[in-house]
C-alpha cells in the first residue's frame, strides 16, 4: 500500500486515536448522545486537525523547542476561534449547533497530540494525510458510539424513528442510561474489547504499560 494511503488507513483501527492512542476521548462523550451531533463534531474536528497540522508543519523548522507547546496551542486556539467567528457570520444556523463544541475542539488532546507527534517533524503533505487519517479514525468511533446511543436511547437514527418507542404505540422501551455520559464510556470499552478480540495483536499483556505511563516514567 502506498505510503500516503497507509497514513490515512492506519489510524482507522491499528492506531485509532481514541481506542489506541487514548487521545480525544473527552469530547467523544458529550457529543455522542445523538448521531447528528456526533457527525458535526467529527466534521469540525477533522477540518481543524487538517488545517492546524498543515500550518504547524509549515512553521515547524522555526518553532523553538522550549516554547513549542504554547506556540502550537496558540495557533490551534486562534484557528478554532476564527473558524467559529466565520461560521457565526456566514453559516449562522450551523454555528448555533456547533458553538458548543468549539471549546471542546481547542482543548482536544488529539489536535495537539498529532501536532506534537507528527506535524512538528514532517512536511506538509504527509502531515495533512496523517491528520486526515486520525480525523477519520476519531470520526469512526464517534459515529459508532453516537449511532448506538441514539438507537438504544431514543429508538431513532438522525431523527428518523427506527425502533418505535412504547410511548408512540410500539414495542421498544428506550434505554434511559444511554442519555448519560457513562454510557459512552461503557460502549467504548465494549468496542475496544471487540476490536482487540478480533485484532488480537492489540491486546495488552499483564506486564505492559500504556504509552502514557512510559512517558511519565
Amino acid at each position: 500500500m502506498p505510503k500516503g494511503l497507509s497514513r490515512i488507513t492506519a489510524p482507522l483501527i491499528g492506531q485509532n486515536p481514541i481506542t489506541r492512542q487514548i487521545l480525544g476521548v473527552c469530547s467523544a462523550l458529550a457529543v455522542t448522545t445523538g448521531l447528528d451531533t456526533a457527525l458535526m463534531m467529527s466534521a469540525a474536528l477533522t477540518s481543524v486537525l487538517c488545517l492546524s497540522s498543515a500550518i504547524i508543519s509549515l512553521l515547524r523548522n522555526h518553532i523553538p523547542h522550549v516554547i513549542r507547546l504554547i506556540v502550537q496551542i496558540t495557533i490551534i486556539a486562534s484557528l478554532v476561534i476564527v473558524i467559529d467567528e466565520l461560521m457565526q457570520a456566514f453559516a449562522f444556523e450551523l454555528s448555533r449547533a456547533l458553538s458548543v463544541f468549539v471549546g471542546l475542539i481547542v482543548t482536544n488532546c488529539l489536535v495537539l497530540g498529532r501536532a506534537e507527534a507528527f506535524a512538528m517533524r514532517n512536511p506538509v503533505g504527509p502531515s495533512i494525510l496523517d491528520a486526515l487519517g486520525n480525523g477519520l479514525g476519531y470520526s469512526l468511533i464517534l459515529i459508532l458510539v453516537g449511532s448506538i446511543r441514539e438507537l438504544l436511547g431514543q429508538g431513532s437514527l438522525l431523527g428518523v424513528v427506527v425502533l418505535v418507542p412504547v410511548a408512540d404505540g410500539g414495542w421498544f422501551e428506550p434505554l434511559g442510561l444511554m442519555q448519560l455520559a457513562p454510557a459512552a464510556f461503557i460502549i467504548i470499552g465494549l468496542l475496544v474489547w471487540a476490536i482487540r478480540s478480533y485484532w488480537t495483536d492489540q491486546a495488552e499483556t499483564t506486564a505492559q504499560a500504556t504509552p502514557g505511563e512510559q512517558v511519565a516514567r
Partner: peptide, 21 residues
C-alpha cells in the same frame, strides 16, 4: 529567536483573531 518567535506568533494570532471578531 525564542523571544522573537513567541512575540510574532502572539502578535499575528492576536491580530487575526481580533480582526475576525
Amino acid at each position: 529567536k525564542i523571544l522573537g518567535v513567541a512575540f510574532l506568533v502572539a502578535l499575528i494570532s492576536a491580530i487575526v483573531v481580533s480582526s475576525a471578531a
